[in-house]
Amino acid sequence: MIDTAVLLAAGHGSRLRAQAPYKPLCPVAGRPLIDHALAGLARAGLSRAIVVLGYGAAAIEEHLAARHWPLAVETVLTRDHHQPNGVSVLAAAPRLAGRPAVLAMCDHLVTPALYARMAAVDVGDGATLGIDRRIGHPWVDPDDVTWVRTQGGRIVAIGKGLAPADSYDTGVFAIGPGLFAALADLDAPSLTEGMRRLAETGRAGVVDCSDLDWIDVDDAAALAKAEAWQLALAA
């Protein structure tokens, strides 16, 4: 069972700037996105979270330091938040010291059971992605989501606008040292390109999470859907 999470929270979040100056602090049903993520990871059984910061790092660090969390929280800075998200993943590598982790996106609101499912993966020397086969789900923006094509429990293709495709990337992974090695070989390391590299050698697996809810809170429309979901859960 994986006990550590890497939470990416370094991006600009420009499409939610009207709602919050820094995306991780954008409130959803009264709680910042980063609070939802950390609470969900703890409920899933993880005991440690490495939060990768970049844009707005000082304000987010202050927010984290002012609260008591149900798991150990530490922060690390990406070397350049203007670079692709693989740079943020690499920033966490020294803290893991070769151990596996659950990789999650701070702006994805995820039911804790999805984190738990990925934490149970024996990832080996590669990475495994939680996928959703509910093509056409109203919470998913087809123009923004990363599409995945699979075969026999493995990724054979991944990317924006991919066709044909049979699933969505949920933004939750189980990762091992192989992903860091794949990213380190890239000039502009993106997570998607790192997964492509692993797929070439059959080391990019998938776990079907189509029965579990998640939403990428990337703009005002998605925020409204996320609010409605969370308020319905609380009712």
Rank of each mutant, 00 (worst) to 15 (best):
T111C: 12
E227M: 07
D211S: 11
H12Y: 14
P100C: 02
R79S: 15
A72I: 11
V123F: 07
A232R: 13
D219H: 11
D132A: 03
A163G: 12
I60H: 04
A234S: 14
Y168W: 15
Y55H: 15
V172C: 08
G126S: 07
L16A: 10
R31Q: 13
L41G: 00
G171E: 01
D185M: 11
I135S: 02
Y115N: 03
G86M: 04
D185S: 15
C209P: 03
V172I: 12
G136T: 09
R79L: 12
V148M: 03
L186M: 08
A220C: 10
D125G: 09
R154T: 13
R67T: 11
D187V: 11
D213T: 12
A174M: 07
R99S: 07
V148S: 01
A18C: 06
E193L: 12
W147P: 10
A181F: 03
A5L: 05
L212M: 08
P70K: 08
A157V: 04
L191C: 10
L53H: 02
R17E: 14
M195C: 09
Q230F: 00
T201M: 07
D80W: 01
I60K: 05
H68G: 15
Y168A: 11
A18G: 13
R15N: 13
G11C: 11
E61M: 01
G202V: 06
P138T: 09
D166Y: 04
G40E: 07
K23R: 15
L183I: 02
L114E: 01
V52H: 00
T150Q: 08
R196A: 02
L103G: 01
L7D: 07
G54E: 03
R154P: 05
V76I: 12
A44H: 07
M105T: 13
S210K: 02
L41K: 08
A226Q: 02
T201R: 15
V89W: 01
L7M: 09
L53V: 05
A37T: 11
D125Y: 12
E227A: 11
A199T: 05
A182L: 01
A91I: 00
G45I: 09
A163W: 12
V52M: 00
I155T: 07
H81F: 15
T192P: 06
R117S: 04
M105P: 03
T128H: 07
L77D: 09
A235G: 14
I158R: 12
C209T: 04
D213N: 07
R196G: 06
T75L: 02
L103F: 01
R48E: 13
D143W: 13
T170S: 12
R79H: 14
P100N: 02
D187L: 09
A157M: 06
C106D: 06
R117E: 01
A220Y: 03
P70T: 07
A165H: 14
S190G: 15
R203S: 12
V76H: 04
G176F: 03
R203G: 08
G130R: 08
